[in-house]
Each structure stands twice: as structure tokens, then as C-alpha cells.
Lab assay of single mutants.
Amino acid sequence: MGFKLLSKLLVYLTASIMAIASPLAFSVDSSGEYPTVSEIPVGEVRLYQIADGVWSHIATQSFDGAVYPSNGLIVRDGDELLLIDTAWGAKNTAALLAEIEKQIGLPVTRAVSTHFHDDRVGGVDVLRAAGVATYASPSTRRLAEVEGNEIPTHSLEGLSSSGDAVRFGPVELFYPGAAHSTDNLIVYVPSASVLYGGCAIYELSRTSAGNVADADLAEWPTSIERIQQHYPEAQFVIPGHGLPGGLDLLKHTTNVVKAHTNRSVVE
């Protein structure tokens, strides 16, 4: 069995187990497998329904001669939608809004960016022009300005110390501490036991640490421990890039980060 097929099978099995364990909360999309990078042309966006009122959005972007996937989250909030992270750029984010209108038909009224990198804030200006209120932590807003990236308009308070959590509509926002970046936030959907790890969490097929220019490698494993301790009931975990899975993604990420750190020390 090929690795790609095995990865998709694991996603399907995880979703099936969740649907059985929580039949009222989960209505997993039966329309197909989780979209992969090879299936999404740059400039297009796919939506994948995880649970009743919960979707991931998947886009792709060219970077350094390669094409990478990027995940975000959409959560229903009454007759409105909360968006977590842009679709990595203005063109993708405009396509995301169009796809949401086509498939869901509810307005996106608020959006949260989970850290300051372009795959999370690139497209904020498109959201703002569409009347979406954009939010991020003060740290993310400051770092985005320093980096020359787009800056969300509103500040999220109460997320300055490791372990801080605040309720934001249908989700809980959690600051686990520094990891992929010093400002990275985690998003949890309690009604569906869905954990969105953003770039602080890796997919299972990833074996290298990737972009760690703004990471705190020493603190990252401790931050992941905080996530595990705060959300032990999480059933569906979405990484910032690639295929979702279960809580095993947290341990896998820790292993990859520690291996990278150990290699760096040896070198």
C-alpha cells in the first residue's frame, strides 16, 4: 500500500471513529477524501466538511520552486461564519470567499490569524475590503508590521502568557507558548472536538522541520505538551499544512522538532 493511500485511509478511519463516538456532533463529509496538494491548482481553494458547521479550507501556493498546501478553518456561528487564517495570499483568499459563498452561503463576518507569517495573514486586506472584521493577538499584529505583512485590524486580548485561553464565538483560542513562531495560536472547536494546530503542528508525513527561522526550538516541545494537557479530548487535529489526523500529530511534531534540534547540535 502506497504512503499517500495509507495517509488518506488514516484520515478516513479517524473521521469514521469520530462519527461513531459522537453521532450528534459529527456529520463528516462523505463526498470524498481530504484534498491534497496535487489536486488543488494554485489560485483555487477546496472546502472539506469535518463536522456539522465545521470545515477546513485548503489552498496551495508556490514557494521556492515548489507547491505547498495550506489549511485553515471555518466555523459556523449562528447565521454567520468565523474564518481562521487566510488562504495564503490575496488571490487565494478572494477564491476562498467565493467558494464559501458557493458552498455554504453564509457571510464571513470575523477572521482570526493564528500567527504573523504570510500563509496566515496574506489576504487580510481582501477580507477587510469584503467587510470582514480581522483579528490577531497584539504580538501577531506587531510582528506582521515588522515583517511588512498585512496586519489584522483588531487585537485579541488575554493571550499574552503561555497557557492563556479565551473564548471567541464558537471557538476557544489558546496560546501554548512559542513553537513554530513566538505568537502562534491554537484554535479548538469544543462542539466538535476539532483542534486546529496551525503551523505549530505537523502532518504525519512530514519528517523535516522546514521553516524554523522564527521558531523557538527549545520551547516548542513544552508548548505541545500544554496543548495535549489542555485538549486531551480532541479527536480531529488539523495541521497548518497537509493531512489531518488525531492527537498523534502532536507527538510526531515533537519528535521531528527534537530530531532537528539534535542534528543542529551535532553539526
Results as ranks from 00 to 15, higher is better:
residue 5 L to N: 15
residue 6 L to N: 15
residue 7 S to I: 11
residue 8 K to E: 13
residue 9 L to C: 15
residue 10 L to S: 15
residue 12 Y to I: 11
residue 13 L to R: 13
residue 13 L to I: 15
residue 17 I to Q: 07
residue 18 M to I: 15
residue 18 M to R: 11
residue 19 A to E: 15
residue 21 A to E: 14
residue 22 S to G: 11
residue 24 L to G: 10
residue 26 F to E: 15
residue 29 D to R: 11
residue 29 D to E: 10
residue 30 S to D: 10
residue 30 S to E: 12
residue 32 G to V: 10
residue 35 P to W: 09
residue 35 P to Y: 08
residue 36 T to F: 09
residue 40 I to E: 07
residue 41 P to G: 13
residue 42 V to E: 14
residue 44 E to W: 08
residue 45 V to Y: 03
residue 46 R to I: 10
residue 46 R to M: 13
residue 47 L to N: 03
residue 51 A to E: 09
residue 56 S to L: 15
residue 63 F to G: 09
residue 64 D to R: 09
residue 66 A to D: 15
residue 70 S to E: 04
residue 74 I to G: 02
residue 78 G to M: 08
residue 78 G to C: 05
residue 80 E to K: 08
residue 82 L to H: 02
residue 83 L to W: 02
residue 85 D to A: 00
residue 86 T to Q: 00
residue 86 T to K: 01
residue 92 N to C: 01
residue 92 N to G: 08
residue 99 E to I: 11
residue 99 E to S: 12
residue 100 I to Q: 02
residue 100 I to L: 06
residue 102 K to D: 14
residue 102 K to M: 12
residue 103 Q to E: 15
residue 103 Q to T: 13
residue 104 I to V: 07
residue 108 V to N: 01
residue 111 A to N: 05
residue 117 H to Q: 04
residue 119 D to V: 04
residue 120 R to S: 08
residue 123 G to H: 01
residue 124 V to C: 03
residue 125 D to V: 06
residue 126 V to S: 07
residue 127 L to S: 00
residue 128 R to A: 14
residue 128 R to V: 11
residue 130 A to R: 14
residue 134 T to F: 02
residue 135 Y to P: 00
residue 136 A to G: 10
residue 138 P to A: 09
residue 138 P to D: 09
residue 142 R to T: 13
residue 146 V to Q: 14
residue 147 E to R: 13
residue 149 N to K: 14
residue 150 E to M: 04
residue 150 E to P: 07
residue 154 H to G: 08
residue 159 L to Y: 04
residue 159 L to S: 02
residue 163 G to K: 05
residue 164 D to A: 12
residue 166 V to Q: 11
residue 167 R to Y: 10
residue 168 F to H: 00
residue 169 G to Q: 03
residue 169 G to T: 03
residue 170 P to M: 05
residue 171 V to L: 06
residue 172 E to S: 04
residue 173 L to R: 02
residue 175 Y to C: 04
residue 178 A to N: 10
residue 181 S to F: 00
residue 181 S to Y: 05
residue 184 N to K: 01
residue 189 V to N: 02
residue 193 S to N: 13
residue 198 G to P: 00
residue 198 G to H: 03
residue 203 E to T: 07
residue 204 L to I: 13
residue 204 L to C: 05
residue 205 S to C: 05
residue 209 A to Q: 10
residue 211 N to P: 09
residue 211 N to R: 09
residue 215 A to Q: 07
residue 218 A to F: 12
residue 219 E to N: 08
residue 223 S to V: 08
residue 227 I to C: 02
residue 229 Q to M: 11
residue 232 P to V: 08
residue 237 V to D: 03
residue 237 V to C: 05
residue 238 I to D: 01
residue 240 G to P: 04
residue 242 G to P: 03
residue 243 L to N: 15
residue 247 L to D: 08
residue 248 D to S: 12
residue 249 L to H: 02
residue 253 T to Y: 02
residue 256 V to F: 06
residue 261 T to M: 11
residue 261 T to V: 14
residue 264 S to F: 09
residue 266 V to A: 14
